[in-house]
Amino acid sequence: MGKVVSIHNKERRKDMRRPVRISARLNGWPVEVVDISVTGAGVGEAVQDKASDDNPDILISEPVTDFGRFPVEIGDIMKLEILPENSETFDLQLEIVRKDDRRNNLGGRFVQINNPAYNKLEKMVIGRLR
């Protein structure tokens, strides 16, 4: 029987991310939070539903934000304004740690979280705030 020398896991996050779809603004740009934990978040492009030119009863989702042209670099700290449907807006500082132009999304970790924002974030992560 052979020995297992090492196991490689690509996931380096300490806390598991919860998949969500929450409207937000990143430095004023419309975005969508696609996953979240108490330590960070994944941010994707915001989409907007538009009626089809051929049939107004058919809605087509179109991207609003293009991260390829978005002024952001790894290491930037940006204001992430969370816009939950059933609660008041709150702000977090997000340090960008990943930018994927091909998939049009960003990943980051939260920095300098105050207590009220952390409490709302914690409720959002466990599913009590939407």
Rank of each mutant, 00 (worst) to 15 (best):
L80Q: 00
V20L: 05
E45W: 03
L106R: 03
R98E: 09
W29A: 06
P63I: 08
I36V: 14
E32C: 14
R103T: 07
I7G: 00
T39R: 13
E122I: 12
I58L: 12
Y118D: 06
E73C: 11
M124C: 01
V4G: 01
P30R: 03
I113H: 05
K99P: 11
E85P: 05
R12C: 03
N119W: 05
K99E: 10
P63M: 10
D15N: 15
D101H: 15
P63V: 05
D53T: 02
K79T: 01
I96P: 15
L83E: 10
R18I: 14
R18S: 08
V97K: 15
D35R: 11
Y118E: 13
I113F: 05
F110T: 06
P84N: 14
E85H: 07
E122T: 14
F90D: 02
M1R: 11
P116H: 04
V33L: 03
R25C: 01
E45F: 11
D15H: 15
L92H: 00
T65R: 09
V31Q: 01
D15I: 13
L59H: 08
V97F: 15
L26A: 00
R130G: 05
E11F: 02
P63L: 08
N114K: 10
D101L: 15
L80T: 00
I22V: 15
E45P: 05
E95R: 13
D100W: 15
K14I: 07
V72D: 07
Y118Q: 10
D49N: 08
V4N: 03
E122D: 14
I126W: 09
G107W: 01
K79S: 00
K10H: 08
V33Q: 03
V47D: 07
R130V: 04
I96H: 12
L121W: 11
E73Q: 12
M124D: 01
K10E: 03
T89D: 04
K3F: 02
T65G: 05
R98H: 14
S6K: 00
L59G: 01
V72S: 12
R17L: 14
R12V: 06
V34P: 01
P116A: 06
V20P: 09
V47C: 12
I96A: 09
P19H: 10
N114E: 09
E122S: 14
T65S: 07
V72H: 11
K14V: 06
R109F: 04
M124I: 05
G127V: 07
G44T: 12
S87W: 02
E45R: 05
G42K: 12
G75T: 05
N119Y: 06
G127M: 10
P71I: 11
N86R: 15
M78S: 00
I113P: 07
D49I: 06
I96T: 13
I77S: 02
D54M: 01
V43A: 01
L83W: 04
N104P: 11
R13N: 11
G2H: 11
E32W: 08
F110E: 05
I126C: 09
G107T: 03
E81N: 09
G28M: 10
R17Y: 14
G44Y: 03
S37N: 08
V20N: 07
V38L: 09
P71R: 11
D76W: 00
E88F: 13
A51P: 08
V64I: 14
N86A: 14
L83Y: 04
E95N: 06
